[in-house]
Design a protein around this nucleic acid. Structure first.
Lengths: 210, 210
DNA sequence: GGTGAGATTTATATCTTTATTAATCAGCAT
DNA sequence: ATGCTGATTAATAAAGATATAAATCTCACC
């Protein structure tokens, strides 16, 4: 009604917020319209189906994740441990701004083969084109050969980092909801974890016999 | 119909399977009945509401998790690192038999304050009664004082272990679905990760200056 | 064999959701 | 003013979901 702002965009934003918080099944186009303050039919007018709308939100978020992962990795010639610190830090800071994102992505991929396939192809196009895995592998195994870090499979290495980083943001909202913690406490928690994760990974892969 | 087995139990089992795979919102009482092969009204006859049925499944699973976490922790007087190895191993093996459980629990707690509160109280009754956190705290900080491990906050320590262990089983089904891996490969993956996680944690908290 | 209790099904009311269609509205071009 | 176009709403069809009530079935027990 009031031309406050393009309703198509408002719908997209409302959808993003609701989908992120309540998932696909837990969000109805009626909810979305209600939040925007427009008619429910308008949601379908712009996006035709709920799945369309969802995919638009979903893929956009996925892109953000991938871009953030790659960026600090590609253009760096710092020492290995510094690079590691930077990558973990960058990824961590990104997720801190999108607390519910990791969970959302995982949630909506599980139990939906079609979406999973979509994501997988997207991911492969992205990482393969830039050869992200190859880069990590090269760097990591070089360090292994230099004996600065213990022998470790690159897949394991990546999973270690991702597990620690991502899981944090799955646990965080639960912790916050339960303890009703303030924004300050939340920030404190995040900072605490960030440093610990970096320390744990670096100590955990360093070659003790070095 | 055929008195193959108590239908109430069959319904509970079917509900468990469907809820675990598709979540609360993604499962209908009709689905559950269909899987059992009985009438949809029977589901309500036994459990009255879908939420009731869900909570029964949910709390039972939660109990399993808590019990498994506490058991190897309480009665052990091995050396700290061995104990750690055992606890991680036990938890890990348990989760390997309930691959979708961690995700399910997290999924259904987020965005549902009531359930979250329920779980929180349950958890507190359980851990507080047995003072699980206190035990871990005592043990960990004793090691810190002995300088066998670096100074580390107990909360951080627990989160490290839980992150690495749990996230693995969130990633596993995705990995399997995508790569269509065989059961053997799945087992291989699990074994690979188990050893790595234990190594990473132990190296990661060991006092290097020791 | 009849009866009563619990198990199971049929039928249905009510609600919600997605999606479509037709109607209305607003503004711009002529 | 008229009419056109895109934006928006009203109305509603169709499908699916939860839940309940009543009917039927089963079978142990007398």
């Amino acid at each position: 009604m009031a031309k406050e702002q393009n309703l198509e965009i408002q719908i997209l934003q409302a959808a993003e917020e609701l989908f992120l918080n309540n998932g696909f099944a837990g969000t109805s186009t009626t909810d979305i319209a209600k939040r925007v303050g427009c008619n429910q039919a308008l949601v379908h007018y712009y996006f035709r189906t709920k799945e369309n709308l969802f995919l638009q939100v979903f893929m956009a978020k996925l892109d953000m994740i991938l871009k953030t992962l790659q960026q600090p990795l590609l253009n760096q010639d710092a020492d290995f441990f510094d690079k590691l610190r930077n990558v973990i830090g960058a990824y961590y800071d990104f997720l801190a701004n999108y607390t519910r994102l990791p969970f959302f992505v995982i949630n909506e991929m599980l139990g939906n083969k079609d979406r999973l396939t979509l994501v997988y192809e997207h991911f492969m196009n992205n990482t393969m084109r830039n050869n992200v895995f190859g880069i990590i592998d090269t760097v990591v195994q070089a360090e292994v050969r230099k004996h600065t870090i213990r022998p470790i499979d690159t897949v394991n290495f990546i999973l270690d980092v991702v597990s620690l980083t991502v899981f944090n943001f799955i646990a965080l909202p639960i912790y916050c909801d339960v303890s009703g913690c303030t924004d300050d406490e939340k920030q404190h928690f995040l900072k605490l974890r960030k440093d610990e994760i970096i320390t744990l990974v670096i100590n955990g892969i360093k070659n003790v016999g070095n």
